[in-house]
Each structure stands twice: as structure tokens, then as C-alpha cells.
Amino acid sequence: MSATISVIVPCFNQAQYLGECLESVFCQTFTDWECLIVNDGSPDHTKEVASKYLKLDTRFKYIEIENGGVSHARNIGIQEAKGDFILPLDADDKIASNYLELGLREFDRDNTLKVVYSEAQFFGKKNRRMNLPNYTFEELLRNNIIFCSALFKREDFVKCGGYDINLTIGLEDWEFWINFLKDGGKVYRIPNVCFFYRIKEQSRNVAISEHDFEETLRYISIKHHKLYINTFGSIPSLLEQNKQLLKKNKKLTKANKTNVVLLLKKLKHIFHG
């Protein structure tokens, strides 16, 4: 049976949150969906949690694979998906009950859209609105401004080649959006909070070491160096622009500022030694 939207939920050691995530999918006001739960070789009770939802509703599907990282798990899930539209959703996050309905409505209004996402909120250890800058591709190159749970067409995913499986410790969603949108395309943000990002004591983003983080940024900047040059004109120009950006934009979080600074250092090293 086909579905209009396929929700892809990779899960590794997140069984304690998986039920809340799947419940948010089950409660969607838009009903023509399927949800593929991808057990990425998780040693916890992911299968047991998933089985409850498999029995509850046939729109839930279950895939079990050897551990290969979130990029690999998402790619596998999307390969098996039947929907025309894809929504990645991490197992520890959740979505508002009208997210699929509102997202698809935007694609119905404008079929040339490439990405639709929403306003967002942190929950868990921290509870506050997520500060999301307005989308421009230039801003995306500076920092990840689109969370992973955005709607896009399956055909566009196929064209861009999917998530980079070399990125196993973080920032894979940022690199995906850079690759996905490098040739252009409209991006729309729903003016409603429809995505909830869980803040925990321990997560991939918290656990990543400074060395691994820098190496990941280096990998991304090397892979897309032509985009950075074509967009900003030159590395010195990029460095000066971002120096001014960091001074003026007081809304940037400490983590985002660190992200920008490290990326600029890596780009400078690549092109100037």
C-alpha cells in the first residue's frame, strides 16, 4: 500500500523516547502516511517498543539493520519508503499533530517548493523556542539553520544521492541540506511550532569531541569548497563578512558562533595552508 508521506525514524539506543516519538506520528491529523522505524543495530529494547505500534496500526513498518550510523539508517528507510514525500524524524524528538497536514498543504500551494519545515521548540532539559534565522543559502553555508525533520520530495532525495554515510558522528543533516539545496530551490518555514527537539544530558551533539567536530567540519568544507568560493567570492571576503556577522548578531548561540569560527578556520587552512 502506498502513502503520500513516509516518516523515517532511525533508532539507536533511544528506545526510552521512541514511544513518545511514534505517538506523535500516530496522532497526525493527516492520515495518508506510513512510518518506517529503522532499528540501527540498537542493543536496547527498540524492537519491543516498535512492536507495540506495529500491532496498533499497519501504517507502522519495522526494519532491522546492522549498526551503520544515522545517515545509513535514514538512507535505508527512504529506499524502502513508498511515499512521494519524506519526513526524517529522530527517535527522541516529536512533531505536532498537524505538521504533516500543514507541510503538505504548502506543497499543494506551490509544487516548486523543495523544502518545507516549521518553527521549532526545545523540550526536555531545556524548554524554549528555537531561534531559527530566515533561510538563505548563504546563511545555510555558515551554519545549520534547518533541523533534520523537514518535508521534501522523495524524487529530490534520489537526485541528490541521499545522506553522506561518511558522516557518522554528527552534522550529517547540515551537509545533507547543503547538498540538497546547492542547485537552488524554494524553502518555506511554516509559522507554527510543529517540531520539538529534545535536549538531553547526553546526545550525539553533546558527546562529540572537539577534535571530531573539527574533523567533521573539515570534511564538509573540503567536500563543498567550490560552493563556499562561488558564494562568498574568496576566503578573505568570507572571513571578513563573518567577523562582522559575529559582532552584530547577538542572537547567535555560543555553539553556533563556535561552529562558524571553526568552519572559517578550516576553510582558511584548506586554501591558505
Rank of each mutant, 00 (worst) to 15 (best):
L263C: 07
V116R: 12
N111Q: 13
F60E: 07
Q79V: 02
Q28S: 09
I190G: 14
D212E: 14
T46Q: 02
D93I: 06
L113F: 12
S118H: 05
E214H: 14
E215D: 10
C27P: 15
F195G: 00
E48M: 03
L227T: 11
A81E: 13
N111S: 12
Y219F: 14
L113M: 14
E201K: 07
N98F: 09
C35P: 12
T168A: 07
W177L: 02
T46K: 02
V193F: 09
F122D: 04
Q14L: 07
E119C: 08
T216Y: 09
E240M: 11
H225G: 09
H224R: 07
G184V: 14
C160A: 01
L227A: 08
E23V: 10
K61E: 03
K248A: 09
N166T: 01
S203D: 06
T112Y: 10
K126A: 08
K265H: 15
C194M: 11
C21I: 05
K268V: 02
A50T: 01
N39W: 06
V116M: 12
K243Q: 15
Q121I: 11
F157R: 00
A50C: 03
H269C: 15
D164W: 11
G185M: 05
Y99Q: 09
L87I: 05
N127A: 13
F137L: 04
L89V: 03
G68C: 04
S51Q: 04
F147C: 05
M1D: 10
C21Q: 03
D90T: 14
E64K: 01
A91E: 11
T46N: 01
F196P: 00
N13I: 04
D93N: 12
Y135N: 11
A150F: 08
E240K: 14
K61V: 00
Q79F: 06
S237V: 14
N67F: 00
K247N: 15
K52F: 08
C11I: 00
V116F: 12
D93Q: 10
R109V: 15
Q16W: 04
C148M: 10
I76M: 07
E210Y: 00
K247Q: 14
H72D: 07
D57V: 01
L18F: 02
L252T: 12
K248S: 08
G83C: 04
L239N: 08
C194Y: 10
T258H: 08
Y228S: 11
I190S: 13
E119V: 08
K182E: 02
T216F: 10
V187L: 12
E23S: 04
L238I: 07
A255T: 12
L252N: 14
C194K: 11
S97N: 15
F213L: 12
G184K: 15
F60V: 03
F122M: 03
H269F: 13
